[in-house]
Design a protein around this nucleic acid. Structure first.
Lengths: 355, 355
DNA sequence: TCCGATTTGTTCGTATGTATG
DNA sequence: GCATACATACGAACAAATCGG
């Protein structure tokens, strides 16, 4: 076929690689050594190596040598990190990503942005695409995190490819051994409930979201606080809703509780949005907040600020920064994976929705 | 930057192809002619052409010549598009990027996110980094767009590499021939001023930002409206401020106007943020809005909504979608660059800050 | 059909620059 | 500082394919 000296060199090196006599990462003979061995000029060797490099068989390091690439294409560090979020419009998203960007930018990394629209199919599709691109790491907000993860394979594949990742906001229950950075939702739920207990409340209702980890954990904190105060947990006072029910179910449930004759003068809400809806709903049925009923939120969003809702501070920017720092530690190997499980401490922000 | 002779030749030829001066199938200059033209050796030319051939820009025919390949053969497509914004926390950013993401996602593209912190140095740094990465296009919000662009070279280089880009929000004056998608700020300034004129106002003050294109254009619209209504333009009624002055200068200027004895019962503000500051400032000196003085904003931000400011609607999501669609048209060649100059129509949103 | 000019393809030799260890 | 190794560049020669006259 090809009898040019260049092609003979290419054929020989490919043969050595395919027969396994050269392993991934091995340093091959230097240009001068090859030139000598084949009795050709260094330029001819360079032409041969250059072709093999563009084909992805080899990669060259200036001043160091030429090396065998990983099967077919050697993935180079591109300084790109994928950030996968559920919704772009989520109210906490801008601040979190700002924190991420700040840290990554300082370290010369860029953000590759993807969204899942909070669907599993979206998440799987995203990750498959990312696996085919060149990324050095991933920060991911899991979709519908309370439902068990059906595509753990994809995460295993990331592990196999040596691409580290960090979960933020929540984490699939089966994958709590993987790195994550999140607000301590149990502690948050406990703190806000204790705040109400401290104000003298005993019969405290709770409204929680059933389809993400955060709802479940905040509920757990709510129980903890009750137990610690020696108050019996009453399931009739707890309302569970799903994303699709969020406009109706919380308020309907609360009205049923109030009409059932149960004494109840405080409500712990899953987040500020629900709290704001509940406050409006209570006013509609002639109950005043906080004098008749105290209401709490969660996340300390703009809504909580403008409506004066007592809530839990969500350290959005901090969370982004910590997640990025954690990921960088995993990438350069300075942080062991087992230590990459970080809970940020929540804090109560007192406003005027409790009494 | 230090570019090798090889890279200069590559850049030049790519530029000729991208500008359409070389059509598909055209024969380019021979190796010897190029060597002569650039005063380099034939080997250097060969190295340059060889790279372009492996990238798919050219193909060579032994004994015949080197020719321009078809657009589709370019092997650089990574389906990544850079989005460069000034600030991550900017209040319009989330909605704009949501629109961009929607369109790009549907077409299988991912977003590579960068921020400049509204500094030229940041912008230059960003672009240099992007040029070394593989991107198919760029959507960029220029930094301090009213100040003339000192790194047009970088944009020329993007052209040379065949990477299309679209300006959003504003555009450097010297580069208005490049593709852009923005709100028609002149028309917006005109509409909001006409709204005040329609309410019977004649002496209308204006507060504008001097260091981005938008401020200058909105001012232009303000003048247009006055002229159309036969009202003389009075420069004493116009206050210019820079980003660093924004907390003090607008209100100071307005107080000076009010105290100077000039009759003035309406103020057109650069944006909602300034309008909100002005309204608060006026109340502090005992003037009521809108009864004593009417105030208008711009952008229809959350602030305008919560404070009830009459303003101009900024079609944030729409702008993102149009910008992305335009860029995709430029990438696949279906949209000629000359047609990629899009102005979105503004609309007045009436609230209660005018009377 | 052949010739010669042109053009790309391959190779050799040499020199200098620059990153690595 | 030094040797090693890759990166860029120049000059030269010859081979092989193409095309017009």
């Amino acid at each position: 076929m090809n009898y040019s000296k260049k092609d003979i060199i290419i054929r020989d090196i490919k043969k050595l690689i395919n027969e396994g006599r050269y392993q991934e990462g091995d340093k091959i003979l230097s240009e001068n050594q090859l030139a000598n061995k084949y009795g050709v000029s260094r330029q001819t060797v360079r032409k041969a190596l250059s072709e093999m490099i563009t084909e992805g068989y080899l990669y060259a390091m200036h001043g160091s040598g030429t090396f065998v690439a990983t099967r077919k294409n050697h993935k180079r560090h591109t300084k790109n990190i994928a950030v996968v979020s559920t919704y772009m419009s989520d109210y906490i998203f801008p601040r979190v990503i700002q924190g991420i960007n700040q840290v990554l930018d300082e370290n010369g990394y860029s953000i590759l942005l993807k969204t899942t629209n909070n669907s599993r199919k979206g998440e799987a599709w995203c990750m498959e695409e990312l696996l085919s691109k060149n990324i050095d790491g991933m920060i991911i907000e899991p979709s519908q995190s309370a439902i068990s993860c059906q595509h753990q394979v994809l995460y295993d594949q990331m592990d196999a490819m040596g691409i580290p990742y960090v979960f933020i906001q929540g984490c699939y229950e089966a994958m709590m051994d993987r790195p994550f950075v999140m607000l301590d939702d149990v502690e948050g739920g406990k703190l806000i409930t204790e705040h109400l207990i401290g104000l003298g409340h005993k019969n405290i209702a709770g409204i929680f979201k059933a389809d993400d980890t955060q709802g479940i954990l905040r509920h757990k904190g709510y129980i903890k606080a009750l137990q610690a105060a020696g108050i019996a947990y009453n399931p009739d006072l707890v309302i569970w809703y799903h994303t699709k029910d969020k406009t109706m179910k919380p308020m309907e449930g609360l009205i049923r509780i109030l009409e059932s004759g149960l004494s109840c003068h405080a409500v712990v809400c899953y987040n500020d949005e629900i709290a704001a809806d509940v406050i409006k709903g209570l006013q509609n049925i002639g109950r005043s907040v906080p004098h008749d009923i105290s209401v709490t939120g969660f996340d300390n969003s703009l809504l909580a600020h403008s409506k004066g809702i007592t809530t839990i501070a969500h350290p959005q920017e901090e969370l982004g920064k910590v997640a990025a720092t954690t990921l960088l530690g995993l990438i350069d190997g300075t942080l062991p994976r087992k230590e990459a499980h970080i809970m940020l401490e929540p804090k109560v922000i007192e406003r005027k929705s409790c009494f």
